[in-house]
Design a protein around this nucleic acid. Structure first.
Lengths: 324, 324
DNA sequence: TTGTATGCGTTATCAT
DNA sequence: ATGATAACGCATACAA
């Protein structure tokens, strides 16, 4: 370690570089100047070998690599993760689980090649990797219905977001508000429905107008059709995601109704559909890249032994456009 | 090295694992069985430290991280790079150059943290990193106008692609074919113009109908306007990229002309514009993810001391849609 | 607080 | 062809 030349011993240099246990200010200074002078940059491999830490975190994604990058959701998550990691000394590497046998992935992760893992299964949680927990810090995007023992999750505040979206409807005087809910076997579906219910009840309205979809455009259209076929008055609908809102749009049009005059529509996610629909969809913004950023932050905290929240809930915001 | 227990010495294990110089078949076998039994996986850090190789390649991109992931072009390149690297033992890490001082990036790259670098500056070449060459294997996406000494490039076959696109026009009997060329200070611009020229000349047509744009929609519209204002007959136009073709579309419409009846249009790149235009644009497909894949392949070849082509040209293909 | 010495898991050099 | 053994560059337990 050349820096020792310009100062004293090399254990001290290590301490200074790592900002560790108290070092004499004078020595600290001369070491730093030496570091500057020699343009010293610690060798990553040596550091890893000696400390048994890799300074690498893995982003574990389910689908095949090729699909991942084309997906705007993953792209945004990766962006957030990378943004946070850039402020640290950690590197990011991605591994797609399905490719080849999962055992290979497992061995890689457990083989001491990584300090922590970020699990991103599209929208909801594929927690088949939960068993890694305990051996390796793990942070999931979204949480599974049955909270696995002790894992860490980062998710958007689904319930509050849904309540905010619904409030947009109650607030503008709508009195017969329905919801096209998501699958009730995953948290986003359950929580968004709860958010809608809380708000309509708070406003003194009925919570009977519920139809379930599966987050696809087609299911949104089918749900809207069932809603309209009930014959009950209806002047507002909160869809649990923008895709189902898009499905609802087509049916509302099909019935000769106007948006938002006859039926106001509010969605959730603020994705591609939100802006491409006509009229543009009023929706709840889902901060995806922030999701990635927070996941990385929690993971690094975990790795460095800092305390972290078990569940981090991201704030949402209402994006007012023309449909409500 | 535990595997040594199940066999003989550890130098031998290393040789077997690395498939190096001749080892006795018998020993090879027992070592391999031991590897299986102990679920042995070589330690990356130790290997790096001893061999002075990192098994890591950097994807160097210009803009800030946040913009990179939103860009479909980069996403496709990354996808290709990742796809190839997944077949090797190399890892990918990305660094964005502009962030903070370039000196930091330079030090990182030269600090022995990386085995090679992939430079991807949007479409054309920002070769400000060419000076790294010699110290580190470098592969660029696209090549600069003045071929720097001895660097490696991977690019789409611009000239042949342009010729193919133009041939679509000459082949369908068009006789007054113009081109909206790209900037003449970068290779794609120059080569695509050359490809167009070669084909119209081959077909015995004039090569006078040229207007230059800068690859933006607005410049394409302006060029088309100038072309039409010449008053000369015109029944076909080859735009050097899809965005300029989109600009041309608007002007052609504005003049009350029909596509493709009055003027057939062919673009280049096969990007988002190609499918969203009406009528859908006939264009030359630019294999972006293949670009990434080949860049990674060339780089790894370079790193491992295998011979590689200085310039790799990717094949293009005509995508026939409705505009020509 | 600071220096010394040992070890991290592999590759590489040199004998054998 | 194979086995010792010395680096690789750093962190760290221990000693001072």
């Amino acid at each position: 370690m050349v820096a020792a030349l310009a100062g004293v011993s090399r254990a001290t240099v290590s301490r200074v570089v790592n900002g560790a246990s108290s070092v004499d200010p004078g020595l600290t200074a001369s070491v730093q100047k030496a570091v500057q002078a020699l343009n010293y940059v610690p060798n990553r491999a040596a550091r890893t070998l000696a400390s048994r830490r890799t300074f690498t975190v893995t982003l574990l994604v389910p689908e095949s690599t090729s699909k991942v990058f084309a997906d705007p959701f993953f792209a945004a998550v990766v962006e957030g993760v990378a943004r946070y990691l850039n402020t640290t000394e950690y590197m990011l590497n991605m591994v797609t689980s399905s490719e080849s046998n999962p055992e290979k992935t497992r061995r890689y992760l457990l083989g001491g090649n990584v300090d922590g893992v970020l699990v991103v299964s599209h929208h909801t949680g594929d927690h088949s990797w939960a068993h890694l927990d305990g051996s390796l810090p793990l942070v999931f995007a979204g949480r599974p219905l049955l909270n696995s023992a002790d894992a860490y999750f980062v998710e958007v505040d689904n319930e509050k977001g849904a309540a905010t979206g619904t409030a947009r409807l109650t607030g503008s005087g709508r009195t017969n508000i329905a919801t096209i809910a998501g699958p009730q076997d995953m948290h986003p579906g359950v929580d968004r429905l709860a958010g809608w219910r809380g708000e309509v009840l708070r406003a003194g309205l009925t919570d009977a107008l519920v139809e379930i979809g599966d987050f696809t455009v087609a299911s949104g259209a089918a749900a809207m059709r069932r809603l309209l076929d009930r014959g009950a008055p209806l002047d507002g609908v909160f869809a649990a995601n923008d895709q189902m809102a898009a499905g609802a749009y087509s049916v509302i049009r099909e019935r000769g109704l106007r948006i938002p005059e006859d039926i106001a529509v509010v969605g959730f996610d603020d994705d591609y559909y939100a802006t491409s629909l006509t009229p543009a969809l009023t929706t709840i913004h889902h901060p995806i890249s922030l999701l990635g950023e927070k996941m990385a932050e929690v993971l690094v905290d975990l790795i460095e032994g800092r305390p972290a929240e078990r569940i981090t809930r991201l704030p949402t915001s209402l994006v007012e456009r023309e449909s409500a």
